[in-house]
Amino acid sequence: MYETNFHKAATAQEAAALLNRSEDGKILAGGQTLIPTMKQRLADPTDVIDVSAAADLRGITIAGDQVTIGAMTTHAEVAGHAALAALCPSICKLAANIGDPAVRHRGTIGGSLANNDPAADYPAAALALNARIHTTSREIAADDFFEGMFTTALEDDEIITAVSFTAPAKGGYGKFPNPASRYAMAGVFVAKLADGSARVAVTGAGEDGVHRHDGLEAALSADWAASAVDGVEISLDGLLSDLHGNAAYRANLVKVMAKRALG
């Protein structure tokens, strides 16, 4: 690992200021991706800015059907939040199946969204739930946030502070994890919004990372049932082929995971 400087920020704004002053700074949230990446010398930030002490980035707030999750909320905290589970169990179930227990104690929702790993789970939830990503300078709709593999709309010195969404009428997540990494080989989040329309987001399967699926959305908007998925054609265009599985295999997984998400 290359050497680096370490800072601890007490607030999100202080972290943004430190980031702005750094030559090539990185925010350190739970560190479950950044630290392995630094070990492999794939990242060599001049400065790492630890935001674990920033109280304004933590916690889950529920007001009616509005959910706000602070960026530094860990996967274990989301998984174990009783009030959130009562309102939107699908996101708790998703969080409970990220990585393993030790990873869930450190990894955070903000870190996951900012990293936008093409096989991460949270981007699918944010996109399907039509979430809003709050940052130190603005609010970004999920539809405008994810810009392809490991790429987001975040500016260099912009930090995610929270993610918020309206609890869906119904929702579910189906994931086929790679047995070694537990990242999704295909993960499908389905959400039936209050107006009855369906949003479906697919992670792990696309060459450009998380994306919505028009065909599945149309089918589920018309009929919210696993049987409605049968008639949907999953195009191989843009699906990932790698040593874990080719595009046809992933297309089939998308269909099966969509059905599992519908329970």
């Binding site: 370490f6 560190g31 630290i35 392995p36 674990s52 030790a102 104690h105 450190r106």
Partner: peptide, 10 residues
């Protein structure tokens, strides 16, 4: 926690 994926300073 996995102590290989945390800096001592954290």
């Amino acid at each position: 926690v996995k102590s290989c994926t945390m800096f001592a300073v954290q």
